[in-house]
Design a protein around this nucleic acid. Structure first.
Lengths: 262, 262
DNA sequence: TGCTAAATCTCGAAC
DNA sequence: GTTCGAGGTTTAGCA
């Protein structure tokens, strides 16, 4: 694969601009729907689904092309304030303060960010067409079992997947080595009480339709402590399966497909 | 309140650095535990709880002092790849490619970010001591109770607020429906042992001044488990109050003020 | 449009 | 340390 690197410079940067200068720069970026990074001393007020106040401090603010907003403190994974995509913006200078107001309808809410010092201001138009692929999701576990049913149990034969059962779906549905129906509920992580109850609901539902012996099996990497008791009392089973192992099966199949192709 | 703005420049920026130059800059930032913003063309591999691949494209990367990592595409609220706080980092140049590897134990996982072009690289040490309050701050809760004393208790009448009492302040001070003095200690989060002891101290102090029946009441959204015993043994009381409810009172009053204004 | 379940959920508090 | 529950959760998939 060839990687092409453009020599264009998509980023324009101001260091320590005055608020007036920054305001003009920001307004231009908004009108051109550019993304923006700000670093500076600011305080933030939010009101909408809830309301919050953030006192003054130095933070990193990202405003994206799609109208999403992130206010990041110097530590922590999560933004302290934010807005999902779709905001409209208003920029205003009042004395030595620059205020950016992000508003959205439905739900009606707004975030006000006020700066009295801007250390860094970058505007940019980023090009990103790269594909993102996540492996070993719950859907991947399902696919892996359908490709190699022995992952679940020797002699298991899937009948259908995502069989429609009110009020949801059965992850995998099939017949075991001795002809009993099997309902499988998949969890990519440790299965808890909720997963057991969900499985029980599905099993009950299938029971009303098929009048024959029926197994309900929870498949997950681990079973939560308290869940074992409920599982047993409801006559259900547990089978340990790592998502990582499923990913390997898929990767192998994927590469075989590639091998077949060439 | 005076706001002090330091004139220091906490941000150091390189525009379009060569990967080698960038690598040195980044290594320096890591060794000084500085935060970092990168904008450039990159691809990302993640493996751990799940695994993912992200093809090349232009993105914004934030690495914080606490070892958290965010990879942001040009749109969307959520980062496409990330790591929570606590990562260790390794930087390496291989040909024209700069690779930053973020690793953490428990769960064992890593994110590899490879750049072939860096448009912007900023390192910084941000100072952020601002308090964040969701719904309402302690001061807001105080204001709300003064505006609507029934939030605290039917028949309650505040006498003064922030009544000076050594060694601190009483949040709210008043008389209840049957004429007893009441000292109120406010907490916007779950109140623990320390809050109880603080209230006890205030109550003792007021007792020396006013020789009449006196109630000490801790007001908070919840009381920590162990705190109930101490509270009772000291003859103090607890009253549950959500900051959210206070925020609503204030919002309502605020809008009424606006209505009066027009 | 509204609801439900999943998430590399994160984050905090209790045990 | 692990487990549990909440979140301004967000997001994706369907009825």
């Amino acid at each position: 694969m060839a990687i092409f690197v453009s020599s264009r410079n998509p980023v324009a940067t101001l260091e320590n601009p005055a608020v007036k200068e920054a305001a003009e720069f920001i307004k231009g970026a908004f009108s051109e729907r550019k993304a923006m990074i700000l670093v500076g001393n600011c305080w933030v007020d939010y009101t909408g689904r809830a309301s919050s106040k953030l006192e003054a401090g130095e933070r990193i603010i990202i405003i994206k092309e799609d109208g999403s907003v992130l206010v990041h403190r110097p530590s922590g994974y999560e933004p302290v304030n934010w807005q999902p995509p779709g905001c409209l913006f208003h920029t205003r200078v009042k004395g030595d303060t620059l205020r950016i107001r992000a508003v959205r309808r439905k739900p009606a809410e707004s975030v006000n960010i006020s700066f009295n010092k801007i250390h860094l201001l970058s505007t940019m138009r980023l090009v990103d067409r790269g594909e993102f692929s996540l492996h070993a999701s719950e859907a991947d576990m399902q696919r892996a079992i359908l490709i190699d049913p022995s992952l679940f149990e020797e002699g298991f034969a899937p009948i259908s997947y995502e069989k429609k059962v009110e009020p949801g779906f059965v992850d995998v549905y099939g017949v075991d080595g001795v002809g009993r129906l099997v309902v499988v509920e998949l969890k990519r992580r440790t299965a808890g009480r909720d997963a057991v109850l969900q499985l029980a609901k599905y099993v009950d539902n299938v029971k009303t339709m098929a009048n024959r012996e029926l197994r309900g099996v929870l498949v997950a990497p681990r079973l939560a402590k308290g869940a074992q008791v409920i599982l047993t009392s409801l006559g259900l089973e547990f089978k340990a399966l790592e998502p990582k192992k499923c990913a390997e099966i898929l990767r192998r199949t994927e590469s075989r497909k590639l091998a077949d192709f060439f």
